[in-house]
Design a protein around this nucleic acid. Structure first.
Lengths: 219, 219
DNA sequence: AAATATCATACGGTATACAATAGGTCAATA
DNA sequence: TATTGACCTATTGTATACCGTATGATATTT
């Protein structure tokens, strides 16, 4: 695994926590490579907005306020809503089948969920991402796709923050169904709105979970 | 000027034309630095989407098809429209004054335009950019701002492709007025729509100019 | 003449040595 | 005790040498 992917993953899974200081030397030692490839990775992570320079002495992993998260999710809702609307117009039959397949997989994953087993939840998240990816592909707009992939990094970091309860999972499934049907019937506007709602829901779940956690920290 | 800025500018002003092959060595010689800072700049330009790897032997400056340009402008209209709507809600009195000031400057620049003098046209473009920047600032969403700044690079490259005629300039001014008024009266939706229209107009002007040029090339 | 194999080399990938500098420490002074 | 200044060091910035490899040219074979 190259340094960029390694470090990005480390940030996403929380191995490098927000506020962690990163220096080229330390990273080079950890990944057993020289500073050159590390510098490269750092530059990329910087434009990704995942790390930020720390007074000319290395970098720190960015931390996100609740307001940051709200803004990011709002932009994501805008972009991914638009993409979904476009997908409803541009999709081929094959696109539709692939999206439908992910939706079926999603339903099955939810039916098979086992709260004792974290992997079943991670699997749901994974299928969910694939559903979104298929829609993005069907929208046939590479620039839009690239932009969304950038915006989506932070939501991915925080995806482990919401442990859907049964009710949330079912609601999420229903919205997926709605989106699929709207794309099927080429109802662009409805597809857009349903996706936006889906993402706003995710936003609120994350924010709620974060606020609960903060309260716990204060006590 | 650091290598990244230098190269980015060179691409924007057309010094490195689309399709130009770039090698680390050649760039290092040209900029009188070693390969290390060049590599750094190249990595950043790559994530900017301005250059692209050329079969494991260096990079080429990306070229954009008309379809690319259409997609990019559409995404820009979406994002900047949203930002303008947000600005109408979030703006302070000071924001409003700054936006109004840019608008006044814009009107004066248009009145003073001299078709024989290219600088007066460049000046209009510059003020136009500042008008957009002020609105972006007033929207108070850093993530949105960062995203738009990325999307806007390609439109900047192509900005010299449209030589507004008198009619276009006046229309452009009128839309600016509309946007300003909508922001003033906190009419979010109207602000959004007016900005979108403004950008779509720019899109069509660029595409028209490019198509005319292609016809000339074919002959 | 076409297809394949061989090889040289151009070029990016990596490591590392050296240079520049910001920031903190500690001592000297007010 | 507070403030200034000098110096040390941690850490990034840059240059460069070496390594690995894909590409394209050349030669060889059919």
């Amino acid at each position: 695994m190259n340094p960029y992917k390694y470090m990005k993953n480390a940030i996403i899974v929380g191995q490098y926590k927000p506020g962690t200081r990163l220096t080229e030397k330390a990273l080079a030692d950890e990944l057993q490579v020289s500073r050159t490839p590390i510098r490269e990775a750092i530059k990329q992570l910087e434009v990704d907005g995942l790390i930020t320079p720390y007074k000319k002495r290395g970098y720190v992993v960015k931390s996100f306020s609740i307001e940051d998260i709200r803004q990011i999710y709002n932009v994501r809702a805008l972009l991914e809503g638009y993409a979904t609307g476009e997908a409803a117009v541009m999709r081929t039959e094959e696109d539709l089948e692939r999206i439908a397949a992910k939706n079926t997989a999603y339903r099955q994953a939810i039916e098979a969920v086992d709260r004792e087993n974290i992997e079943t939840i991670q699997y749901i998240q994974q299928i969910n991402q694939q559903f979104h990816s298929e829609i993005l592909f069907a929208a046939r707009n590479d620039h839009l796709k690239a932009l969304i992939e950038r915006v989506v990094v932070v939501p991915i970091i925080f995806r482990s923050f919401y442990w859907y309860d049964e009710r949330q999972l079912m609601r999420s499934l229903q919205v997926h169904e709605t989106i699929l049907q709207a794309i099927r019937h080429r109802e662009s506007d409805r597809a857009r709105v349903a996706m936006q709602e889906h993402i706003y829901q995710g936003r609120d779940d994350v924010i709620e979970a974060l606020q609960k956690q903060n309260i716990l920290q204060d006590e």
